[in-house]
Design a protein around this nucleic acid. Structure first.
Lengths: 222, 222
DNA sequence: ACAATAAGTGTATTGACAACACTAACACGA
DNA sequence: TCGTGTTAGTGTTGTCAATACACTTATTGT
């Protein structure tokens, strides 16, 4: 370690973001179409370089903001991928982050306007460039795990939501149906939610109580 | 992303390893004394550069091997640290790994012979260079979490061990006493252990049955 | 043979998760 | 205004896992 910077091998560092949101009752991810070789025409994950004097977290947030227009979205470091053969075009290390975009915020996000961007359901992805399919797999697994012992699900929900929407979010991430009464009992016992004095009427049926998470901080339970 | 490598900012990548072992009934970590500024004279984590054509995993294993003489020790990527001010001596990103050295293997390991290396209990660490204290904290937390839902503890134990030693390992990592009967009941219900036809006699008391883990693979439970 | 020491073993209680079906409140149309 | 369609909201029971807790067994050294 005790060497001068000049001895450093020329490994490049990039950053990629797996931006999740729920669209059409499916967990989906933002990808961009490559315009150059290798993998020209294929989709890959959005990303970029780390700017000077920027932390990894800041770089990830910046890219998320470029895509969504929003700062303060939930963003978490996922894993660092560094196989020398993962990119045929030189030697790259990629730090991957994943981020969560609330359901109600993806209609007018910048990535919607950009024609080279697409929002694809994770269950029906085409072949992606490089090892990006692996990255998404890692991210989905992390999300599946954390939804069960943290309040991470709020990153995908609007500020105010119905319990049914919360349950649906869990079901989509976990990819399995949940029991309504048990789900509500569990949520209530965790004490993370606050019922609001507001109802949402959305059709000819009983109006739903709206809830919000008491805190935006990450909470671990179990 | 679609740019030539030459446009890359000059960020350097290093790798650090948190090598854990249990010594004297304490979770301990290998550190090395710095011989140059900054932090000359302080301890820091062992590490190095990523060699050409080497994956991150390979680089981590290589450093672990340099320290222990052993290949095939349990090694896992921990986190990538990239604050621009984490090193006053340039702009560095550090990929941190942690590794586990079985209790019975640390007496004659190379790091024992190297006078600049020390094995220090994590509860009594001096001030360390850079953000290495944070890295160790991350690693301890990861280890605490994973010992509860994986068979990761075997990385700290010899091939054959007494149930009492296994329990002790858990107690040291979790930093709390466990009930003997409940611990053994739980272990037995997981079905990960195999009782051997061997006893270990170590004093004037009933000899203990030796056990081994059925598989070296990482197993998740719960 | 007996004293010292660690190994090994069972039961009762408690709390969490799983399975399961009906009533409540509203909108709309006849 | 009454009936129908639709989603919201609510309890109980059984099962299984986690907890709390104390004595007997097998060996060695004197």
């Amino acid at each position: 370690m005790n060497r001068d910077r000049n001895e450093l091998h020329q490994v490049g560092v990039t950053l990629r973001v797996i931006l999740f949101t729920i669209e059409d009752d499916q967990l989906s991810v933002v990808v961009t179409k490559r315009t150059i070789e290798p993998f020209k025409g294929s989709y890959n994950l959005p990303g970029g370089f780390i700017h000077n004097n920027e932390s990894l977290e800041q770089a990830a947030s910046r890219i998320v903001q470029e895509l969504t227009g929003d700062t303060h979205l939930y963003t978490e470091q996922l894993y660092t991928f560094g196989d020398p053969d993962r990119d045929t075009n030189g030697w790259w290390i990629t730090v991957a982050y994943f981020a969560l975009l609330p359901q109600d915020m993806h209609t007018h996000a910048p990535f919607r306007i950009n024609p080279s961007c697409a929002l694809l359901p994770v269950e029906k992805l085409p072949t992606l460039a490089f090892d990006h399919a692996t990255m998404i797999e890692y991210a989905v697994n992390r999300l599946k795990a954390k939804v069960q012992y943290t309040n991470i699900a709020q990153g995908l929900l609007p500020e105010k939501f119905r319990l049914t929407s919360l349950q649906k979010t869990y079901e989509i991430i976990l990819n399995k149906p949940l029991d309504k009464r048990n789900f509500r009992k569990k949520m209530s016992s965790l004490g993370l939610l606050q019922a609001l004095n507001e109802k949402e009427i959305s059709g000819r049926h009983r109006p739903a109580t709206l809830y919000k998470f008491k805190t935006k901080e990450q909470v671990f339970f179990d």
